[in-house]
Design a protein around this nucleic acid. Structure first.
Lengths: 226, 226
DNA sequence: CCAAAAGTGTTGACTGTACACCCATGT
DNA sequence: ACATGGGTGTACAGTCAACACTTTTGG
């Protein structure tokens, strides 16, 4: 590209880091890698990478999603750009961060293959991360909590068909609080986003649950939720 | 700085652009400059500049605020990072954007002095801007509308003392809708953010209005507003 | 005394919240 | 038959929205 004119200026390094969330085993988990190189060698970090030439930050985030989680076509959103002075010991490197929501069964991690083997870790059990990634994670969790309360993004964490209990549980896990079952169902069904299917789901010796699906996929902003 | 390791990578240019809002003459206005150089010479644009070495984007935004609007210590917040492929004809240059809220009387623009003389323009009367700045402006307005509804940032657009009518008018201008006077006063006073002063404000032949002030300055997140 | 903005309450609709029992199934 | 999660309704409290007149001042 013809950025001869920009050579007069100082260009910081620019990376993209992605907070990839999923729900698994009743917990909110995030994809982390163990760094293969310095700095922070062998420490946990968010997956990410430098922006390439002729690539947008969004493209970079999609590349990270494909490389580290083996998924495409999931919900993704830019979070914030972090550039605290000493966030990276290599120098002045800013990070444009994204967060992505993925239903667990879409993830395709090839076990043990990669050098920086990605793993889903329960967000409640994460001690310290490399760089300022703990701060990024905290920011991402807050955004996730806010966003499920005034949009329909929750759909991007669920399989195509799901029970109302699964849906409620997903909210409870993310918001980290109990929700009343009757009120939840009333409210959510009133939003008109869901349609019941003929199918039922049963597991163990309980009454089978009706499976629902979202009428429309795709993002929508709503009045309010909880 | 020792960013020898990052030399292996492509570093895009990084600018900071700032949407500086104020209320003047019953309108929401934004500070714009007329560009002195190509690209977009003589076109209107948001004030901004390249990030300097050892400077954070936030620092850059403060520098822009000081240089173009002559203010410091005002409300400022990072908005979003824009990096669409052809947003800048000079090449791959991303913009980390900020928005700032300033009471009109704090602004110190020295008329006619600067090469790119900044002016406040009514946001409703802006046709086209340079680069993708129209998109940035739209994004900033949306953020402003949202933010005054669940935080107390409105304080940063008002003088220290103000009447409830001024406060209400500020909301009406930004949200672009009429609000019922009685409901507004009831609700806002109930929030407990304001205290009445002994002073009154009168202008013309009306009943003088009580002047209020915010009990605490500084940002606060609230339950809800409107 | 007139014009203009300041200031003030009530009602009905709606929304949120608390709360407990029966249902359908698998074992 | 029983254990397990699925599924349902009502009542009270709080919040929101609509609405009109009196007050205080300057001219």
């Amino acid at each position: 590209m013809q950025n001869s004119k920009t050579k007069d200026y100082f260009n910081p390094g620019v990376t993209v880091d992605v907070a990839i969330f999923t729900i698994e085993d009743g917990s909110l988990k995030i994809l982390l890698i163990k760094r293969a190189n310095e700095p922070f060698k062998n420490k946990l970090a968010l997956p990410g990478g430098f922006i390439h030439e002729d690539e947008t930050a969004h493209d970079t985030a999609l590349r990270v999603l494909a490389d580290k989680a083996g998924v495409a076509g999931v919900y993704i959103e830019q979070l914030y750009t972090f550039d605290a002075p000493n966030r990276d010991p290599r120098g002045q490197i800013m990070s444009v961060t994204y967060f992505a929501l993925v239903p667990r069964e879409k993830i395709n991690i090839e076990e043990g293959r990669q050098t920086e083997q990605p793993k889903f870790i329960d967000v409640e059990k994460i001690a310290a991360l490399s760089f300022d990634h703990s701060e990024i994670l905290a920011y991402a969790r807050k955004r996730l909590q806010d966003k499920i309360q005034y949009t329909n993004v929750i759909y991007s964490l669920l399989p195509k068909l799901f029970t109302l209990s699964q849906l409620q549980s997903t909210y409870e896990i993310i918001l980290d609080k109990k929700i009343d079952k009757r009120n939840f169902r009333k409210k959510f069904l009133q939003l008109g986003l869901l349609e019941a299917t003929e199918k039922k789901f049963s597991e163990g010796r309980q009454r089978p649950a009706v499976l629902y699906r979202f009428k429309k996929t795709g993002f929508a902003e709503l009045k309010k939720f909880f």
